[in-house]
Write a protein that binds this DNA or RNA. Sequence first.
DNA 1: TATAAGGGATTTTTT
DNA 2: ATCCCTTATA
Length: 743
Amino acid sequence: MQTTDQLETLLAGLNDPQREAVTYGEGPLLILAGAGSGKTRVLTHRIAYLVATGAAQAGEILAITFTNKAAAEMRERAELLVGRRVRAMWVMTFHAACARILRAHADRLGYTRQFTIYDQADSRRLIKRCMEAANVDPKRFTPAAIHSQISDAKNRMRDAEAYAQMVGSYFEQTVANVYTGYERELHRANAMDFDDLLGRTVNVIELFPEVRSAYQDTFRQILVDEYQDTNPVQYRLLELLSGERRNLTVVGDPDQSVYGFRGADITNILSFEEQFPDAAVIRLEQNYRSTQTILDAANAVIANNRGRKEKQLWTELGEGDPIHVRELDDEHAEARFVVGEIQRLVDAGASLSEVAVFYRTNAQSRVLEDTLVRAEVAYQVVGGTRFYERAEVKDAIAYLTLLVNPQDAGSFSRIVNSPRRGIGVTSVARILGYANTLGASVWEVAAEPASVPGLGAAAIKAVGRFMETMVALRERATSGEASVAPLLGAVLDQTGYLEALRAERTIEAQGRIENLEELVNVASEYDATEGEERSLSAFLQQLSLVADADTREDDKGVVTLMTLHNAKGLEYPIVFMIGCEDGIFPHSRAIEEGALEEERRLCYVGITRAQRDLYMTCARQRTVFGAHGYAVPSRFLGEIPDSLTDRGEQQARGRAGFRERLTSWPASGPAATAETGGQSLRVGRARANPEPPAFALGEDVSDSKFGEGTVIGLEPGGIVVVRFRRDGSERKLLSQYAHLSRR
DNA sequence: TATAAGGGATTTTTT
DNA sequence: ATCCCTTATA
């Protein structure tokens, strides 16, 4: 118990509802936190308050988020309030908490504690295999469609058996068949997918009363962030963990529920009061982020949704500037407008890092990127291919995974012929099939390749050599020596993986090598961390739950580009929302499926990211999938009152296109100056400095691997494009690494 | 068994 | 337009 002074310090600077939320006593609590209303602040202060008043020990707090980034932020900010006691708290994602619980109890469900976690791509590969096994026509149903159906079933706690009970169409019957096989194969591989982490945790808690009561005792206080994004399993999990005590604090904003398409159930937050009739509800409506104009626009748009929990955001920050709405000719003009405007703002003193551009679909970034590159404005794209999704990184991880989980057929088939060892798909299928027949693990079967029926002599030899290497590596991995980085180095080396990449000597291969070096760095960092049990399998589990090496940098002085979905939780002084056209945003598929309200919430999310300046643009014509089309401004634009925008002003001038032309970027010429009155261009970080080319265009060259060829292109960064005579191939080589010589 | 040409799809994605 | 995957071929 702390002194009153200390408690007062905790509460200082909080507004009334925030203070009420922080100090609320026992029982369920729903905090409806509007955008920018300080919900993380409330959560962390509540955590500190609970500890300070003795309502819970640090070790009795479970604070759940959806992303690692949010968990890290919460942990940091809680540490500022409670100090090192934060170490005892469970501040982590749903999946990480479940993985931790399962590492202790998965054996009760027939898994080992080294179980592998399959990410979406792993799952999809397995689904595909199961579809083949069940003779499903891949033309008729895609693995993605089937996986999403299975995932949806898992989110609703329907196992394969329950699903099969209620099929109503041929598609569902097909899914049921694949689902059954998929579950069997997952379990055989001692693997769980992301959905299983949640579902199996629920299973273990439901099935074993002693496990249940242990965790119910441990977690005296449970707090959940972004509650509007929870799905039915997560609800069940919270219900089980909070137990009789029901000290459950959930924070969220139903208007920011934008993940319904992946199973999030907005009714969790909308019906919280029915599910917990004694719940207190606190609304945080004061916004500390945006101007009143921006908030009014957001309020106006979201008001068109039905069945909401009413909420009116307000601020003391003042009215601010009107929202800039622009209609441009096409996506190129739109991009030029955005870039020109960014340059104008920068000239007026803004920093590029204050600017973000949001779009509905990733494909929209391309035109914008081209325009930014031409204008030499530095930018970063958030999302896209992530570090741990790169093939070489996944390969390296699969090698390690197979070493700790020799049952993992997925990892085995991923790397057995990577690098090429002359073990093709047929041979792999024979090995997997034989393992299936025997009910043995892939490892055991591969260790005796000669006994696999139908395996050719060459394949037997190749598999034998592969397994020789793997057995040696496994001995090393299980010898009790805990350092991961040296082991990873040995894997990359002894399996010939690095050698094969080096032999390619292409710019792409060089990039892959660098990625692998980065992975070794990640491993070294892991090796150096203190506390907790460090082991290869713990490392791998940690990796599998960190999808992104979080590439976004806030202070790099670059413009940030991302999808609206990725924008959730962020804020920028200046925001551009591009492609505000019906069919793009709201997306045509969403319109077809009647998912307009979720699109509108996405619009609400986008608008409320802006602190000071908000631009919304649309194009009259746009090329989609290579086809020209005319576009209509987004219905969401129409939902914003004209009085909040500069549309009237634009019309009053009677020359809507005039200003655009003034600030637009000339269609060509990288060094062109914007026609904005002769200001000098602010140029961002140069993207690549061309080195003096070692080779000249048209020069005849010779490469030790590809033979003779001709230089047909030179690109910045010392990249030489060569067409080789032998096979007519065009390859990009990095002159610095390539074994290239003049003839 | 490994590489080249055709065909079809194509939203968003915290883990 | 583009990417990915299947199919055809050396």
